[in-house]
Design a protein around this nucleic acid. Structure first.
Lengths: 134, 134
DNA sequence: CGTTGACCTTACCATCATGGGAAGGTGCAT
DNA sequence: ATGCACCTTCCCATGATGGTAAGGTCAACG
């Protein structure tokens, strides 16, 4: 199977498949006489795994670790769980930060008339004027 | 005031102050005979504005727009509000995406024993095994 | 057989915001 | 005058992804 078909099948772009190979996330694909990369079942499975992990927000390095664990018959589920919980904690931190921005901005926007006049609590806040920091 | 002190005072790194100047977000700073950049009150105020906007997650281009509006006596608060609400919508989208990841991963982690055995619903999910997609 | 078009190859550049470091100049205190 | 802290510019790196250019491969169609 050529790279384009593998990309289609797994939802990982051909561009990214090559990239993952270049950074050693996946082994170098077999090549045909044409020098085209050739993918089989195992490769597709691995790419699907990566795709799913990316969708869940794992970083490339975390995925590298997950792939190692996936292939390790001696793995302890505790390791997988720890990695996952670490990622969940990072997600929560990021969510909290974005949520705070959203909250602040929503309140400022609500206080803004949004008319043709220039007066605007949003600009006032950014400019560091007294009434800020909702 | 030298760039280091301005950085200290505004919380914007010297590195970024130079960068903002290079991309035209702030006007080129005055120079002393030494060729050192020299900052005054106006500059600090502007940098503080940028800092606050960055903290609220606005992109550089959005900040460029906000700065333009800040300095525009003819501005309409509606424009500021619209820009802000657009950003809020983007934040909400991002939060929702992260929240979904968090939710899925939390459930998978909860279902994982986290012991010395290899069996793990997290790996199973990533590998595309049947019971996945919580 | 020859051309076309879809696919592949590598290599380089761009994004976005930020930081790191090198190589060298400035300025003040000892 | 030596040292140290600060400044200057320039280039490179991050993480994940996409774009484009220049060229090779292959199957189909006339």
């Amino acid at each position: 199977m050529q790279i384009g078909e593998a990309a289609q099948a797994t939802g990982v772009s051909a561009k990214m498949i090559r990239h993952y190979e270049a950074i050693g996330l996946i082994p170098a694909a077999d090549r045909r006489d044409s020098n085209y990369r050739d993918y089989g079942h195992r490769d597709l499975h691995r790419l699907g795994f990566i795709r799913r992990a990316r969708d869940l927000g794992f970083s490339i390095e975390q995925i590298r670790e997950l792939l190692k664990l996936w292939g390790d018959r001696e793995r302890e589920s505790a390791d997988v769980k720890a990695l996952t919980l670490g990622h969940v904690a990072a997600l929560e931190k990021k969510i909290a930060a974005l949520e705070e921005m959203r909250q602040t901005l929503s309140q400022l926007a609500e206080a803004c008339d949004g008319n043709h006049r220039p007066d605007c609590p949003i600009i006032a806040d950014l400019a560091g004027e007294h009434g800020r920091r909702y």
